[in-house]
Amino acid sequence: MLEAHQLSFRFASGSPLLTNISLRLAPGEWLGLSGDSGAGKSTLGKLLAGQLAPHQGSVTIDGSLLPARGVRPVQWLPQSPELAVNPRWRVGKILKEAWTPPDTLIEGFGIEPQWLKRFPNALSGGELQRVCVLRALAPGVRYVVADEISTMLDPITQLSLWQALKAHAERHQLGVIVISHDTALLNRLCNQRWHLAGGSLRVSSTELEAP
């Protein structure tokens, strides 16, 4: 169980961005997070993944704090894959920095073996995003924060990415937090839906669909 307890975060100027945010996510669950730009969705995602430290409150997994070293159990996936990979590394090395996925999984994510020999700039955004998602599924990872990862993609690429992640998450009881503007997408994917506004969370939709 991933839990956020009373998280608060302030800008460097001191004005509050997030106040007293609490949420829970069980393994295998999908949580959708929406909100206007500047509402703090990405910041909340980074707090949950341990990329940022909250000013107050804590994030725990099964009651214990996120470990300071080793593979983080909550992985963060940013919007643009181009910035999430070292442009001087070949794709194979990028993937292996985290782990060596089995060939079946590489195939399952629609990653072609010859991509691994290429540099990131020779891949399209959708292709690279699949590499980034697969990279984040290293052993020991139990939750993933996907911050607008499909915004830049056309519908078919977007769909195939989510299908691959969905299949893996089901098999490994992975919890996923989806941050997006796209309410239709969130309704499709998530069994918990929250809307972030004015620094706090609200249940966003009454019509929760089973995923």
Binding site: Q51, W76, L83, A84, N86, E97, A138
Partner: peptide, 21 residues
């Protein structure tokens, strides 16, 4: 850069990041 933050998230040490990134 985000890829350095991500590298840290995979448990890479400071020395690895300096040397390889």
């Amino acid at each position: 850069a985000p890829y350095v933050a991500i590298s840290k998230g995979f448990g890479k040490r400071q020395g690895f990041i300096v040397w390889h990134h």
